[in-house]
Design a binder for these strands. Structure first.
Lengths: 341, 341
DNA sequence: CTGTTAGCGCTTTCAC
DNA sequence: GTGAAAGCGCTAACAG
């Protein structure tokens, strides 16, 4: 691979001059010399060695993004897609994405190593939770990062998130427009942040509409179809006039479980009970009935994360108002939603 | 961030000695000194700077993996998942994955830049095609890479692939066991390698079974549901006794199209017509009826790719028999397959 | 056994 | 305008 020396020799100048030209030190070099250097660069096919540059500037131009270890059953196309958009945005900003994996029970050592070895300049972290150890660690270490997802409200850091609250409020209002009044929701367990924001949206929209929320209308469980099954079984055991006619679920997987259980119970989704999921997983539109769901604006979120991180990396001040970005999900109505029975 | 100098100072030795200890130059340093150095390392919290190491050894310890630009409609969870397994395997081997994106119409500049700037030590490339420009380029440049997928048979390079031929043969035989004889298939257009291997498996199994393959039993199209719809419409226009009773599709998306069209035509999948897709996309088991499909052994493929690439990077000889690995997909039978009508 | 030293390829003062 | 030279943090001859 040719180096700056080869170019210098070819152009008959010093390596310093070549460096000036390459780095557009505009008035450090005569037009004539500049031409000559570029000619040599072209001829030799030279490109600056990234590693050397990085060593010199003690940066890596790499952004770390971690995939959680996940059981196949709970595999989440959302985060994989997100990674794609991140990579795209990072490139546009002159960075590359370094992807790594970590055991969710002990993330810190991996992050720590990446930092201490100078592997990455910053991180994008996803799937944040309350008391997220990564956020706490990175904050303490004062290492640049942007989160896709919020954490403890007393922690001040840059994040971008889908506005689950607004989404679920919209969900409630849309269902009301279809005539539903007994609207229930399935949430994650109480420790889940994203789940709770959606619960808040649900509750406030219900209250604003003057609709009662019976205590047993908020079911909690994990991100799988079993949760949906159990929730529906439970509600179906209620007297008919107490049964919800519409259900908002925090994820498509859960919503799918509801539909599966409904089929077994002879309940017709979209007629007897309406269902809305979350994430717009591939194939949701081909379920029977096609599943209504919320689509997260992953491309925008990815871009926003990278933009903010680049600002941090450039040591530029980030306007406090712009440190936190909330983007609304898009409701996609399909056949799983119908008029109230 | 502490450097080797700090450790040297702390331990009261030279930086060379620290380096020896760190690199396990076993009989270059006395046990006593070694202890002392490690103590200093621990105390200071030192980790060697990766960039400096890389510059010195002119390597990057990074493996490049590209995501294709893809329309949202054709989004392929398979490759995203694959990336996860690659990252995992790479880490186990002391590498990291650098993910990037490229416009499929012109991939070379991106690869070229990554090589010339010394960004990566090697590539994993996926979704290879006939005359794949990336394979041709990397081969010409003699740059280390391993492909997930084959290319021109006259090109000699390391690859790992799902054995679509064996898979489709198994598909045919399984369908035969269910009593099917009029078995059709939906392939990609003739330029697709993976598609063609599957066609070969289909044809040879049919012939081995002494079953005829009418010319119009192989439909070709792109990777979307529309292709499946068109294929089924066409076959349904045939006289009943010429209509296939079972269909093998090269992808789940196509198979889903078949099912959708079937519903519109009043055809009952799994009873009137059996269908098998490919990829085991998330949610396929929740379709109505649940979709039979092939699952690619992505984790094994990822590991095999990384193993081979690491061998190449270590400049160790790769046994010619081991340069090419074919792994069988796993057939998952669900309700879309039933006895022949 | 341990230390001195020469780079890896590049950027950036500082002289001229 | 241009070049000589220092040095980013590390490894590996080479000397002692």
């Amino acid at each position: 691979m040719p180096t700056i020396k080869d170019v210098a020799k070819e152009a008959g100048v010093s390596i310093a001059t070549v460096s000036y030209v390459l780095n557009n030190k505009i008035d450090a070099v005569s037009e004539e010399t500049r031409q000559e250097v570029w000619r040599a660069v072209e001829k030799i096919g030279y490109m600056p060695n990234v590693t050397a540059r990085n060593l010199r500037s003690s940066r890596s131009r790499l952004i770390g993004y971690a995939w959680h270890e996940q059981p196949r059953s709970a595999m989440n196309p959302v985060l994989h897609n997100f990674a794609y958009f991140l990579a795209q945005a990072a490139e546009a900003a002159g960075y590359h994405l370094l992807t790594f994996t970590f055991p969710s029970y002990d993330p810190i050592p991996v992050y720590d190593e990446l930092i201490r070895t100078g592997r990455v300049d910053g991180f994008i972290i996803a799937s944040t939770v309350t008391d997220d150890p990564r956020v706490r660690y990175l904050l303490k270490r004062d290492f640049p990062f942007v989160a896709f997802g919020r954490a403890n409200s007393e922690w001040d850091f840059a994040w971008v998130d889908t506005d689950g609250e607004a989404g679920f409020a919209e969900g409630v209002n849309t269902l009301r427009a279809y005539g539903h009044e007994r609207i229930a929701m399935i949430a994650y367990d109480a420790g889940s942040l994203s789940g709770n924001y959606r619960v808040n949206g649900y509750i406030s929209a219900m209250q604003a509409a003057g609709l009662p929320i019976p205590e047993n209308y908020i079911w909690r469980g994990i991100h799988d179809d079993q949760t949906g099954r159990e929730a529906l079984s439970y509600w179906c055991a209620l007297p008919l006039d107490q049964r919800p006619t519409a259900i908002l679920a925090v994820s498509d997987m859960i919503a799918v479980g509801v539909c599966e259980q409904a089929r077994q119970c002879g309940i017709h989704i979209g007629r007897d009970v309406s269902v809305i999921g979350f994430d717009n997983m591939p194939l949701t539109q081909y379920l029977q009935p096609s599943m209504s769901t919320f689509e997260q604006p992953l491309e925008e979120i990815g871009r926003a994360c990278i933009d903010m991180l680049c600002t941090l990396l450039a040591k530029q001040p980030l306007d406090p108002h712009e440190r936190n970005v909330l983007l609304p999900p898009r409701l996609i109505l399909r056949d799983s939603v119908g008029s109230a029975p």
